[in-house]
Every structure is written in C-alpha cells, then in structure tokens.
Simulated assay, not measured.
Amino acid sequence: MSDPLRPTLPELARQALSSVQRGYDLLAPKFDHTRYRTPDSVLDATARALKTLGPFTDGLDLCCGTGAGIHVLREVCSGRTAGLDFSTGMLTEARYRYATAPGFGPHWVRGDALAPPFRPGTFDLVVSFGAFGHFLPAERPRLFTRVREVLREGGTFAFPMAAPPRPGTAAYWTLLGFDAAMRVRNAVRRPPFVMYYRTWPLAEVHRDLIEAGFAVALHPLGELGRREDGSPRCRLLLATKR
C-alpha cells in the first residue's frame, strides 16, 4: 500500500518541473518521508566522528532543508546553532520540528549558500548533508570561499562523501541515467532544476578546497560499511581553515 506521507509521482514530477527553490517549497511537507533526507545512520556517524575533533562552539548547517543536520550540531556544539536554506517551505518545516526542542533552539536563516548572510568568522563548524548536487562544478570555488569566510581561524567544514558506485553496477547506471535525464530536462525547460549526482568527484572537490585555503583530511565512517576491497563506503571530509 502507498504511504500517504510520501509524495506521489505527480507531486514529484511537479517538483522536478519547477525551479529548485519552488520545487523544495512544494516538497517540504513530505520531504522527511522521502529517501532524499539524509539517513540517521549517516548523521549519527558524523556526530560521533566530530565529537573526537572538537570542541566546537558555534555551528552552521549549510543548506539545512528541514533541519536534519541540526541534530549533529546539537551533539557537538556548545554554543549557537543555525540553519541556512533558500527554501521558505523547508525552513517552515524545520522551525516546526524544533519548536519544542529543549534549550536554546536553532536560528533559521533564509539565504543563498553562495552569499551567506553572516559576518566573517561567525562559526567554528559548518556541516552540510546531501545538498551539493544542487551546485554546478563551476560554483564550487565560490561556495568554498564563502564557507571559509564565515569560519573562524582553524574552523572546520565537514561533510560526508559516499564512495562512488563501481562502473557497470546497477547503482552506477541509475545515477548516470538520472544525470542524463536531468541534463535533457534543463536543456528544454526553464527555469532549470539543478540536481546532479556525479558532479562532485573527490579529487576535484579536494583540489578546490585546497585552492580556497583549506587543509583537507578524510575520516572513514567505518560503521556505515565497507566495500569488497575493504575501503569505507562513506568518509567524512574535514576541511580546516588555514
């Protein structure tokens, strides 16, 4: 039986034919019941890894959506927490989720990750989960530069990166097909809906972070499983402001 809490196929199609911002406004009430929400296992593994690297005071969840990443910040930060997103609908859901949260609640900010409305050096920690497919490769240097600006000296930019599927596997062809369909959609319809799964390879992300002024390290999240060759299925990328 279909789950009434999950978006229907027509609702997903309507989202995909909208702009990114409008699409997420439409999807927001049901977003947490889709597979697009970052799994709790990834959030918990990230929090455990960051606890060994702190302490952190103030933290930002970049492209926070409905606020799943705030769970991580509340686990590892002793000061203020904030979530930044450009979708009013997603922020509305986030505010509702944390309306009765004990203690000092998160500060929700509507804005563009490429031009975050914060003073330089505001945060010790910036995290992000599942949002980077919405940025084109040419936008990475600007995004990383802006993140570096809002971090304090020695601050950390952290986000999980899953190992890419091996060529020839079902997952590989699924992601390749999705990206191809999205490119066709954006070639024939405006406004574009930017969402690609294969545009953030580790080597290029590492290079752009170094050029933006970060020192980069990888922390394996072994509890999320390993591939046949023994390598972790997911790593936490840790970029430290130099």
Rank of each mutant, 00 (worst) to 15 (best):
L73H: 02
L238M: 12
V20W: 00
S231E: 15
T34I: 05
L236S: 04
E149N: 12
H134E: 09
L221W: 07
R190E: 15
P165I: 01
P167F: 07
E149K: 12
L224I: 07
A187Y: 08
P106S: 08
R119S: 15
C234F: 03
R189N: 10
M90T: 02
L221Y: 09
A171E: 14
R37H: 09
L27W: 00
L84C: 05
P102R: 00
S2A: 13
A82N: 04
Y98F: 14
R142D: 12
F118C: 05
P55A: 00
G177Y: 08
P191R: 04
A203E: 14
V76L: 01
E204P: 07
A163Q: 13
G67S: 04
H33G: 04
P165A: 06
L50H: 01
G154C: 10
Y98C: 01
L53V: 06
P220N: 04
A138N: 12
G230I: 07
V147Q: 05
D3G: 04
T57F: 05
S19A: 12
P55V: 00
R183P: 08
A181C: 11
H206F: 09
D40R: 08
T8V: 08
K51C: 09
G54E: 04
F178V: 01
L238R: 14
A158Q: 03
F56D: 00
L209P: 11
D112W: 09
R152H: 09
L91A: 00
G230Y: 11
M182A: 13
G65Q: 02
H107G: 08
S18V: 00
F178T: 01
L12K: 13
R80W: 06
A181K: 13
R148W: 05
H219L: 08
L91P: 01
P116T: 01
H134R: 06
A82K: 00
D179I: 02
A47R: 00
C234W: 04
R146F: 06
P116M: 00
R207S: 11
P106V: 01
M90H: 02
L218D: 03
E228F: 06
D32P: 08
L224T: 06
L91R: 03
A101F: 07
L50C: 02
H206D: 15
P116H: 03
A162S: 14
C77Y: 02
S18G: 11
L26E: 07
I210E: 12
T88V: 10
S78T: 14
E153A: 15
